[in-house]
Design a protein around this nucleic acid. Sequence first.
DNA 1: ATTCTAAATCGCTAATTAACCATATACCGT
DNA 2: ACGGTATATGGTTAATTAGCGATTTAGAAT
Lengths: 119, 119
Amino acid sequence: MKNAQRTKKQGTDELQRGVLERLATVFKLLSEPTRLAILHELRNRSQSVGELVATLGTSQANVSKQLRILFDHSILGRKQSGNQVFYEILEPGVFGLCAEVCRLLNRRAENNGHIQYDI
Amino acid sequence: MKNAQRTKKQGTDELQRGVLERLATVFKLLSEPTRLAILHELRNRSQSVGELVATLGTSQANVSKQLRILFDHSILGRKQSGNQVFYEILEPGVFGLCAEVCRLLNRRAENNGHIQYDI
DNA sequence: ATTCTAAATCGCTAATTAACCATATACCGT
DNA sequence: ACGGTATATGGTTAATTAGCGATTTAGAAT
């Protein structure tokens, strides 16, 4: 129990607002298709902003902004290389979350007779 | 391969926008603290709107609205009982998602020397 | 029917934000 | 220094939405 002092032990029923807010923040990061597309693109290899812009169907400004959001939350890391900036996944846990949502959606889809995705 | 015809098989690299949007929609549902609080409250037992209003610190109108959103997405079911309406979890998978986010946050928190949550 | 209670809906405001265009910054080659 | 390329930022717009108070709808009980 090393961290006992700093550990907040909450009752079974009452859950602190702050905890819910942190959870919500993570979900919110993943609640935009463009950001999910960025994560998916970076899954297997780091890429420069330009590469991402070429792949995703949106403006350079928008890609840059979404990258910043993910970077600011430490989901992505960045490495400058000369003229370009390469982004990489720092938090692979996000893919586990996506996979779990896919399973959830597929479970539902089965009831309608078709399988839909795999990320 | 029963569902082959209706199954969309996508290439390794290109991911349909629609899939990302559906994923994003699920994450968005979970991206508000009030909705997470509702889910947490309902985890162990169905509750009426009134009970939820008494527990959560927000207006009846707001609770009702958030319940509707979760209901419309089939995360919750409702059962009328006389004067009251009871809501219940229809999609327990959401708790798995919350737990995974907690683990993700805890992994990060460990680097700062404290454990934070458990939902 | 009337009253009481429970839940849903309406109208509104304030805050957030994705996406765009235009501009600025920064780095490289010449 | 200068031009070219890559990325970031500023400013704006349009859309979404959480939350509130007020009202409406619906059921229960008298």
